[in-house]
Design a protein around this nucleic acid. Structure first.
Length: 336
DNA sequence: AACGCGGGGTG
DNA sequence: CACCCAGCGTT
């Protein structure tokens, strides 16, 4: 992995933000794209938002991207482009919590801060046979304290790297390699046959279904899109005119009140209806359908929307379900 | 303290 | 299908 042994705090920071709740194999290509496009934090700081979002497209947890841009600005403007060098200063930056601050300060500056991520929690819970849930305040405090006590303060960076690698390679979530584990004899979970049950997590959230109907409103060779705001999913990504329903729509699309209100007395025609697309999020299942509507005049009721040429769509960052639709053969045929 | 945020791999 | 991933910010 290109960030192993890396000492440039910019590169370490970028890799750690990308890797938050993200598998190394998934994040690697994004890291390489970003480093290639923005070799320094100065170049990242002056890049247009749109370009950065487009590079982040598909990676998920999009507030990470906005925080990335904010932190690049802060480092360039308030720290003269030099990344702050202590845990406390680093942790003040946007999108950087205890884990990321510990990672950057130990890897780049050799500060004695213990990283606690999912790997470390799992290793500690098993090794010491601790059943305190990892997703509670008491649990987080306990694992952080233990990790801090275990830290090799002479070489914190190497130690942090090692315990995370150990968790990722040997002490894996499922089917850990206890047979070849050098710590087997001292592992409380192994002794008591509790490896499979540790670590303990307290809450499991229910998954909910949502039905999204995207109206691709075409006027000449242009389509209305807007950027999502608010606290819902896909923060800052773009989308078409959205009608969300709590249950699947049963009526004919051309009769939908949503459309009638949008167009008022203006005429419109539904020219294409896509199949139903699906996107699985961690706690939501999105059912999405795309309805193409053609009109001869601009739609004044679409406030906050941009009328964008179809050819420009490839420069815009969309959620995966919209990207899937745009890349599907039938969609390409009817839209372009 | 509880909750929400993505997309993808694994068994 | 359930689980989890080099977590964080908001309420």
């Amino acid at each position: 992995m290109p960030w192993k042994g890396e000492k440039d705090p910019y590169k370490i920071w970028l890799s750690e933000i990308i890797l938050q709740q993200t598998r190394v194999e998934q994040g690697l290509a994004y890291y390489e794209k970003f480093i290639k496009a923005f070799p320094t934090i100065q170049q990242l700081a002056k890049a247009p938002e749109k370009k950065i979002f487009k590079l982040w497209e598909g990676l998920g947890y999009y507030t990470r991207c906005r925080n990335l841009m904010a932190t690049a600005q802060i480092v360039v403007n308030d720290y003269k482009g030099k990344f702050p060098a202590t845990y406390e200063e680093i942790k003040k930056l946007k999108g950087i919590g205890p884990y990321t601050a510990a990672a950057i300060s130990s890897f780049a500056f050799n500060e004695a801060q213990a990283v606690v991520d999912g790997n470390v929690q799992r290793v500690i819970a098993r090794y010491f046979g601790i059943s305190t849930p990892i997703d509670t305040t008491a649990g987080k405090k306990m694992y952080q304290e233990l990790a801090t006590a275990l830290l090799d303060t002479e070489q914190p960076g190497v130690y942090n790297q090692a315990i995370m690698d150990f968790g990722a390679v040997i002490c894996k979530p499922q089917n850990p390699l206890c047979g070849e584990c050098p710590q087997q004899a001292d592992c409380e979970a192994f002794k008591h046959n509790l490896v499979k049950q540790l670590p303990v997590k307290e809450k499991t959230l229910a998954k909910k279904d949502r039905w999204f109907y995207y109206f691709i409103i075409q006027f000449q060779d242009k389509i209305y899109i807007h950027q999502r705001t608010g606290k819902d999913i896909w923060q800052d990504l773009h989308e078409f005119a959205l009608y969300e329903a709590e249950t699947p729509v049963q009526t004919l699309f051309q009769d939908l009140p949503f459309l009638k209100e949008l167009f008022g007395k203006q005429s419109y025609s539904v020219t294409h209806i896509s199949k139903v697309f699906h996107q699985q999020l961690t706690h939501q299942h999105i059912h999405g359908q795309f309805i193409t509507v053609t009109t001869l005049k601009p739609v004044t009721a679409l406030k906050g929307y941009d009328l964008v040429d179809k050819k420009q769509l490839k420069k815009v960052a969309f959620p995966r379900i919209i990207k899937s639709f745009l890349e599907e053969k039938a969609s390409l045929a009817q839209l372009f």
